[in-house]
Design a protein around this nucleic acid. Structure first.
Lengths: 214, 214, 214, 214
DNA sequence: CATGAATGAGGTTTCATTCAT
DNA sequence: CATGAATGAAACCTCATTCAT
């Protein structure tokens, strides 16, 4: 039910999908659906919540550090972390294209209810925290706001997937990696990174806003 | 009429907008509309065509070179060109938010007709040509496909605007510049640029690029 | 079950009450109801039958004569009997407002079945007999038909209760008594009542009917 | 449209009447109806308003005094006035049985809007004023509240009409007159009426509650 | 026995579109 | 030309009822 509604909404959008279309695809009667969900809007919210939750799970393990991390060059570790984030997102887009497409639909806003909006934020949060952490450690530039990074990152991925769907692009692992490295170059700090022992001292008092190096 | 329909579609999408809604907003009668457009679909295509055309115009002069360009450092010239492209797009998004939002809507596809799809491609084309040109001249990296660059670029802008609309971000000229520079760093070649007169070997310490593979 | 359905029907009428509403109010499942009653219509008939029966019971003892009656002035006895009838009805309306309201609903007719209609008549019958008896005894006027009396009596009570429910009237014992006495004056014979032995001879000169305007 | 809806609602009640039933009876399409009335509820309110207005008109001329009135016995004049009121109502019930039946439906309340409720009151008002006037002039008893009189009067008429519809009664002019005279006897003062010049002095300080005559 | 799940028919309302005027 | 009135189809949703469990 969720799945079939997700697919329908992803394909044609909320307004473009009629309840009967969903019913037929699911092979159930109207009343069966309406016993589960009080309205079409409740259905799309349930679908949205589930989709966001899956996206959240896809990102959840980003923070896991390899055991070997401690021994390696901090810049490498940070890059690997970035790679992990991007690849999770990319994997999600590749493995759950329908879910991704649904989430990527513009402007769910008018019909999303409170819980859905809350969820939306809660999925983004860990990503934002990670970026802030990397910034604090001098790995990511501080002259690019975290908000800008996230919007750019997600936007870029969405753009790639959409271009691929429209046939402007044959998206594969290579192309995803190209974009990922480009973004990394755009976001990563160019200063040498102090190692773990001295970092804190030297990075104190970094202006939190852009243009520090100018 | 166009303007009113554009606004309605941008606000609620094609399927979310009813003909009566447009009629009321425009203050005309159904028959008046149907004399101009044979159907709702024809209307949205006309609107789309016009919107894309305006976007095309916004990009059209990107290729104009300042008279001073010839005298300057090729890298600077290239960067300036990139800045021009981005700023045109950003300006378009800022000055015609409704049009931008409309174009940014996912999946016009199902109801776009032939001319509209053709137009879609024709607007992107000059941008692609510019990128390819810059690549050939060694200003943009060749290890990032032009298709990837364009998708990333446009996607990033869309992502920023959308984040701004949802309140995750207060988009202003500074933030747009942050994103632009990040993308430039991601796309720009780090090798010295061979140009007709000089080849400058000034770039040192690119540092972060692809050091993962060591 | 009966009670719950009665309340629902009284509140919103037969057509205005859905089976699910009743189910929820009763806290039972559809199947439970349908094992007891074959259909919604059967349910409302059962409810109707029970309600009419209760009304019948409320009127049943009207005919009981106080032991003292025999000793008193016949007019007083008759008046007391009338008071008893009215007060029974009024008490019923006061003590079972929901049932009263249900019965008072216009036009059960379309969905009442045979037994229900039979019951309807059987409840009215004793009242009619009483009135006819009183008429025969010269206590009630003979220039007002028993059918008119009953319809007026019941209609007046319904009107009072309805006016009260709509807030046009604060119905209490006093107001009920006002109406009762007014009706009594309207229905009671003005001639002195001969006792049982001479009554028949004196009943000449019906007179007053429709000649008031002289 | 109004007429056909009125008939349908009068026949089966608001909830018992489906929009398609009205449409078919009126021979129009759903959209035609919905261009005139935003909803079924708006329709029933419009119908109600019109019906009450017609009832109001039926009562409007009650107050007209015959030229001859001044010369006649005050009690006769008052009685004639009462007759006029009743006969207007009865005529309305007879000439517009459908409208009468519609208005008589219990508990429009849940779906009536503001204007409808206001109208309901405004129709009753002149009748109430007349009764109060008659009371003040010593024609109607003061030991029966005006509210009680009105509720009784209207209720009695409704009761008669309903009994007639259900076949308990063959309502004709005679029976209507019987009921009318009975009510008159119930409501009319039994004291001799002082003429216009002395009335005010003698009727001062009448107890407003019942049992004056006891 | 009692229930949760199911359903076809039908409820009210809106849509995209047409056409006489 | 422009409009108000009209319409069939379809939208979302609820109803009275049934049946496997």
């Amino acid at each position: 039910m969720h799945a079939v509604a997700l697919e329908a909404f992803a394909e044609r959008g909320y307004h473009g999908t009629s309840v009967p279309q969903i019913l037929e695809a699911a092979g159930v009667s109207a009343s069966s659906l309406y016993r589960l969900f009080p309205s079409k809007e409740a259905l799309v919210n349930a679908v949205f919540l589930e989709a966001k939750t899956r996206l959240g799970h896809a990102l959840a393990e980003v923070e896991g550090h390899d055991a070997a991390d401690a021994d390696r060059d901090p810049a490498s570790v940070a890059h690997a972390r970035f790679v992990r984030i991007w690849d999770r997102l990319a994997r999600f887009a590749a493995e759950e294209p329908v879910t991704f497409r649904f989430l990527e639909l513009q402007d769910h806003t008018p019909y999303l209810d409170g819980p859905s909006r809350t969820k939306e934020l809660s999925v983004l949060a860990p990503l934002a925290l990670t970026c802030m952490d990397l910034q604090r450690r001098g790995v990511l530039r501080t002259d690019v706001g975290v908000d800008v990074m996230l919007a750019t990152l997600w936007g870029a991925l969405v753009g790639l997937v959409k271009a691929s769907r429209l046939g402007y692009l044959a998206l594969d692992a290579d192309k995803l990696a190209e974009a990922r490295e480009a973004l990394w170059r755009g976001f990563a700090s160019t200063e040498p990174i102090a190692d773990a022992r001295t970092r804190r001292a030297t990075r104190t008092n970094e202006g939190t806003k852009r243009r520090t190096e100018r």
